[in-house]
């Protein structure tokens, strides 16, 4: 097989912080240049990703069930959950806004759960199925991760802006906290996932 040698075969490890290729032959703990810890793979990648994913899944339930926002208009307050907000916009004809909120707040986290779970399972089973597509999926998950914070930002902004005492008042409700946690935890999960595992085929390589 004429293929360039792999870094593992040359006993080289890339520093995550400064990008220096360090010699791993005597298993140094730190980067020679910047002193950052050296790992051949992200440490505990699968375990951490699973943990964060499960935690975010747990938080996803209250995030959707609890109200995220309380809108008080002329003294009549109403709690709204994410889904009720989407429904409200949809019923009032603002289907575009409803779609944006739906995608950013419900579809994207759900997609992330599914995608990460898929990646984790396939990696654990050392599947060679659609590796490049899976790699693209992981990049996509990392990309859309930030946009999930849209909802949290909207609530934070609106709650800060709309303070008209008796006329109108918007207050955040605990649901948004859980939603923020979901977003943070899914991002952590995506970060702790090592995409190189997608390409690993050999048992000894996976162990290190």
């Amino acid at each position: 097989m004429s293929r360039p040698p792999r870094a593992a075969e040359l006993n080289l490890v890339l520093c995550h912080a400064c990008g220096m290729a360090c010699d791993n032959s005597n298993q140094p703990h730190d980067c020679e240049r910047c002193g950052a810890p050296l790992h051949a793979h992200k440490p505990d990648s699968l375990t951490r990703t699973w943990a964060y994913l499960i935690a975010s899944l747990v938080f996803y339930i209250p995030a959707n069930l609890l109200p995220v926002m309380n809108t008080t208009l002329f003294g009549s307050g109403a709690d709204s959950t994410i889904m009720s907000g989407v429904m409200e916009f949809w019923e009032h004809g603002a289907w575009d806004i409803a779609l944006i909120i739906f995608i950013a707040s419900i579809a994207v986290p759900a997609t992330k759960f599914v995608a990460l779970a898929l990646l984790l399972i396939t990696v654990q089973r050392r599947s060679t199925w659609a590796q490049s597509q899976r790699a693209r999926l992981f990049r996509f998950v990392e990309l859309i991760g930030y946009w999930s914070m849209l909802d949290v930002l909207v609530v934070a902004l609106v709650a800060a802006l709309v303070k008209f005492q008796a006329l109108g008042d918007i207050e955040p409700r605990p649901g948004i906290l859980f939603f923020g946690m979901v977003v943070v935890l899914t991002m952590l999960a995506a970060m702790s996932f090592d995409p190189r595992l997608i390409w690993q085929r050999d048992k000894e390589q996976a162990d290190d």
Binding site: D44, T47, R48, A51, Y52, I54, A55, S56, V58, F59, I61, P62, L66, M181, L185, S192
Partner: peptide
């Protein structure tokens, strides 16, 4: 025991308390 499992544990606890 990976310490990272504390995170889902806390999440479950919070959910349960809710």
């Amino acid at each position: 025991i990976s310490l990272v499992w504390i995170v889902p544990l806390v999440a479950v606890l919070v959910g349960l308390s809710l």
